[in-house]
Amino acid sequence: MSTTAIDTQIALNGALNRNAPIRQSAGAQVTDYDNRQTVGKITVDNPKMACREVNVYYGQKHAIKNVSLDIGANEVIAFIGPSGCGKSTFIRCLNRMNDTIPAARVTGLIKLDDDDIHAKEIDVVQLRARVGMVFQKPNPFPKSIYENVAYGPRIHGMVNDKAELDQLVRDSLERAGLIKEVEKRMLEPGTSLSGGQQQRLCIARAIAVNPEVILMDEPCSALDPIATAKIEELIDELRENYTIVIVTHSMQQAARVSQRTAYFHLGDLIEIGDTDQIFTNPRHKLTEDYITGRFG
């Protein structure tokens, strides 16, 4: 299955590339609203994850239609689009969170490095340890701050003793930029923190297991602007060590934090490309309309 999928994709890319001469002037080349073929280059040189012809069905509803794209190592890629476009559904495919929804069915190929994440020998537990996730609403466990961060390392058996665990928890909180705020209150419940701190706690919790990819599903939508700014800064720093996929409804945020951007519309991947290009020179009429605020 994987070879056919990739062959198709190569053919697809060829077709796309022929139709996509670089032009710096404003205005889209694809003006047909009904044309839902992905515009832009879906591949990267050093992909961390690769998705080919991914489809998601919720019962009868076709929520993601034939989406193919690469996620480069140590890049921040942003998924944007109007609400209900499927960007959150798609990101949940990347660590198989859709498995928890009984009605959801996912087809297509998704690879993490060289592993097909749907393959039998890949365990979902292992996959999710490698691909961490941060949710829309901060969801710290009803435990202490320390225990929140220590949760992942504990269940996976990552550390050998208490000292290592302490070290790991401190490191993670430091990387999440939270250590100064919580150093003195490690044993207080995670829910006692402010919203922005809670979200950074969730990020610390995710990076404590040392994942390769971090998925962020609208991580700032429940936060105030100052907290948002902190998280955005953090995302930029995290890029050094992790590959980050972020879903956002805010175009400004996508522009600020990401290197590449993918625009989703009603389950289709409409356009993908460098963030600068998408925002300054969208090639599809739908992307342009969205970016210029005609809907969304």
Binding site: D123, V125, Q126, A129, R130, P153, R154, H156, G157, M158, V159, N160, E164, L165, Q167, L168, D171, S172, V209, N210, P211, E212
Partner: peptide, 27 residues
């Protein structure tokens, strides 16, 4: 926790390879 199965006793926790660690405990 599981000294025997953790192959990376020497490396600092943050650089340990999550893939092998998880695999060791999966069964």
């Amino acid at each position: 926790m599981n000294k025997a199965t953790s192959p990376n006793g020497a490396t600092p926790p943050h650089e340990r390879d999550i893939k092998t660690i998880v695999n060791a405990g999966l069964a």
